[in-house]
Design a binder for these strands. Structure first.
Length: 719
DNA sequence: TACATCGGACGATCAAGAAC
DNA sequence: TTCTTGATCGTCCGATGTAG
């Protein structure tokens, strides 16, 4: 008999196991045989996307010490009943028992004995103690009720919340702790109204408003592709299982999960095209959005989102707000986000000392939610009032850890280590790294509240491994996070260009903060530097908008229209209309215009006119400066398209004569020397090219923003 | 009749401890 | 390092329900 082949070490050779091909998700769900061709026969028949299932990591549930002890007692009892002498566990030496259990890896501390191994002292969830030691934090905010009772801050929270129901019947003054007080308020204001959201407009059970089984599944898949990689506020493996279960019995799910599911439907729909909505859900996008937003709104009321402390509930509210964004005035959205932040602060998710008490998994999910909210809100703040941003140094929530969702499991007791390679959390990690730098930056804080600079100084050494240097941050982002990226992977592509865009954007902002004088009073070096950041922003934005890889992420990219970059470039072009930098500016603007506006429907809205007016002013300046002899074809294409959209004739091929009208109150942006050189660069020259824009020939910084149609503007991702 | 749903039996897999 | 154990995951048969 031939001997089995062996490995170099002498052990028997085992060919690698062929990778197991699992049934597709739909077949698993339906419990039918899958032929494992993708698409499989059932999916083809059902005309749905066939998605191969992913193998779940084994989650072996270790029996708790309590369960083991209980089992042991049962066996002892059986032995005793059969008249067999036995030394009971109660008689055994405590130290010995403890050591035995520790030997099995069941105990993390020697302090507790038989009452719940997965608990650390004070009833904290698994992993809380381990994680705690990993952090330096600002410390926990004092609790008033603990101070009243002279108790250490750790002695309530999770344990007491869990025990509230036990002693809630007749709380005495000694029982009074924050969770008890909350419960008491709950009883006192049992029927409070949701004043902000008004009364329900839905007169049917919410369970009847869910999409069909198959549609729920498809929406979840699209959410997993388009939303989750960028926001990372949900944990795909556990939530997918919950949603698939819930889809089977939508009437029997918890209120929080119901709100979360409706919020996922709404958020997913904003990422779909009109055609996709019809094909997949059989209705128009606005109708579907309205339907699921109403249902989500009601589901949020049902779970008392304003007073809830459930993470699912806050996540649902956040996703609901994300779904409102494209059709909502940012000034309306901003206070709604303020509500979300007030809830988050009540839940203490911005506080690391509080997060670590919730166990490894929950703490990580709280961090992800907080950072996603801060990042999204900071964009809204940019669009409304920069001062309201939460990108400030007064909280200490850590950046989420760089791991795949499968490496983050609810039963974990130690925080997973940051992976070197790119993971599913890449975008969230990079966004967090940039955000962490920005919130401690003094020049950024000048725009918000200069007093916070003292806080930033005091806390930076604790939180910011990136030093005070944007170059250092850029280095780390490029060499640590983007190094392993594959440009063919949509999330990697998105992260690379997003990160570069934001680094350029913050250089741009910080430069503006440092050199806030009028551009005309800045040195050429300063003007060139800031112009280069503006160019970079447009180039990155063009890369993001033009790639087919990022189609599913357009909902977020469109939200970040590089408006300040355009403003700055045009300002510069009006005063320096010719030269190498000007040629480059037109080329870059044209490329960005092509991906942002060319497919836009001709619109009479004031926003586009405003944008057009600004660009045409710069164009007029160039045209005049070159006496009509302009060879910049790319710029001309852009101008022709703008004119077309405005319903104006294409720009005339101006003659030198046209280009030298008399100066009548030339533009304030121009230094006198340049007005002399280019006498046509003035208000009249713009009107000459496009008289319909006379009313709009105003500086962007001076216009009345209160009259702007923000709904349309925000749909386009302005400003 | 065709198709969807789902309880539940059964096999496959693999983490963890035991044995060598 | 290999073996054993048993919990968990994954499959899909077949009973049942539903719609046309």
């Amino acid at each position: 008999m031939a001997s089995r082949p062996t490995t170099p070490s002498g052990s028997a050779y085992r060919p690698p196991k062929p990778q197991r091909i699992l049934a597709c998700v739909l077949c698993q769900q339906r419990k039918v045989k899958c032929d494992r061709k993708f698409p499989c026969n059932h999916c083809v028949k059902a005309r749905v996307q066939c998605v191969p299932a992913q193998q779940m990591p084994r989650r072996r549930k270790r029996p708790t010490e309590q369960a083991l002890t209980e089992r042991l007692r049962q066996y002892e009892e059986l032995l005793r009943r059969n008249n067999i002498a036995v030394e009971t566990t109660d008689d055994m030496d405590v130290e010995g028992t403890s050591a035995d259990v520790e030997g099995q890896g069941l105990r993390s501390t020697g302090q507790t004995h038989l009452d719940g191994v997965a608990q650390v002292p004070d009833g904290q969830p698994a992993g809380a103690e381990v994680v705690k030691s990993e952090y330096q934090t600002l410390g926990e905010v004092k609790n008033f009720w603990d101070a009243m009772h002279q108790r250490p801050p750790d002695s309530h929270d999770v344990t007491e919340e869990a025990n509230v129901d036990n002693n809630f019947g007749n709380p005495t003054f000694d029982d009074l702790s924050e969770p008890v007080i909350i419960k008491v308020w709950g009883r006192v204001y049992d029927s409070d109204h949701n004043h902000l959201f008004g009364d329900s407009k839905i007169d049917v059970p919410l369970s009847t408003l869910h999409p069909s089984h198959v549609q729920i599944f498809r929406l979840w898949q699209i959410y997993s592709d388009n939303i989750n990689p960028l926001l990372k506020v949900t944990h795909a493996p556990t939530l997918q299982a919950r949603i698939l279960d819930a889809a089977v019995d939508v009437a029997g799910i918890s209120r929080e999960l119901e709100a979360l599911m409706f919020s996922i439907y709404c958020a997913t729909i904003i990422t779909l095209s009109e055609d996709d909505c019809h094909a997949m859900l059989g209705d128009s996008k606005p109708k579907l959005l309205r339907k699921y937003q109403n249902a989500c709104h009601q589901a949020l009321i049902n779970c008392g989102f304003l007073r809830s402390r459930e993470r699912d509930c806050l996540t649902a509210f956040f996703l609901y707000l994300v779904s409102l964004r494209p059709d909502t005035h940012p000034h309306t959205l901003s206070p709604m986000f303020a509500i979300a932040f007030r809830i988050a602060y009540r839940m203490n998710i911005a506080n690391e000392a509080s997060n670590v008490k919730h166990g490894v998994f929950e703490a990580e999910m709280r961090r992800r939610l907080w950072w996603a909210m801060v990042a999204y809100d900071s964009r809204i703040s940019e669009m409304t009032d920069y001062k309201t941003t939460q990108l400030i140094p007064t909280w200490d929530c850590k950046i989420p850890v760089n791991v795949n969702d499968f490496d983050l499991r609810p039963e974990m007791t130690t925080r997973p280590t940051d992976q070197e390679a790119s993971t599913e959390a890449l975008f969230a990690i990079v966004r967090g790294a940039i955000g962490n730098y920005v919130r401690h930056n003094a020049l950024h804080l000048d725009f918000i509240n200069p007093m916070l600079k003292h806080v930033a100084k005091a806390t930076q050494h604790v939180f910011d491994p990136y030093d005070d240097d944007l170059n250092g941050l850029e280095n780390i982002i490029e060499n640590r996070h983007l190094k392993y990226c594959n440009l063919e992977n949509p999330l990697h592509y998105m992260t690379i260009w997003w990160a570069r865009n934001h680094l350029a954007k913050y250089r741009f902002f910080l430069h503006c903060s440092q050199h806030s004088r009028s551009p005309d009073h800045q040195s050429t070096v300063q003007r060139d530097a800031i112009l280069s950041y503006a160019f970079r922003m447009l180039e990155c934005d063009t890369a993001l908008m033009s790639s087919p890889l990022t189609k599913g992420y357009h909902w977020l990219i469109q939200f970040h229209f590089p408006f300040p970059a355009y403003v700055r470039i045009v300002q510069d072009l009006r005063s320096r209309p010719v030269g190498a930098h000007a040629d480059k500016a037109w080329e870059i603007m044209n490329a960005n215009y092509t991906v942002r506006f060319v497919d836009m429907e001709p619109s009479a809205n004031i926003l586009f006119k405003m944008f057009a007016s600004t660009v045409l002013q710069a164009w007029a300046a160039r045209h005049a400066a070159l006496f009509g002899q302009d060879g910049a074809e790319s710029a001309r294409r852009m101008i022709v398209d703008i004119k077309k959209k405005l319903g104006q004739p294409s720009p005339p091929i101006a003659t030198a004569d046209d280009a030298v009208p008399p100066v009548q109150g030339g533009m304030s942006m121009l230094p006198p020397s340049e007005v002399q050189v280019f006498p046509s660069i003035g208000q009249d020259s713009v009107n000459y090219l496009d008289p319909s824009l006379a009313e709009l020939n105003t500086d962007l910084f001076e216009m009345d923003w209160g009259n702007v149609d923000w709904n349309a503007m925000s749909r386009m991702g302005w400003p």
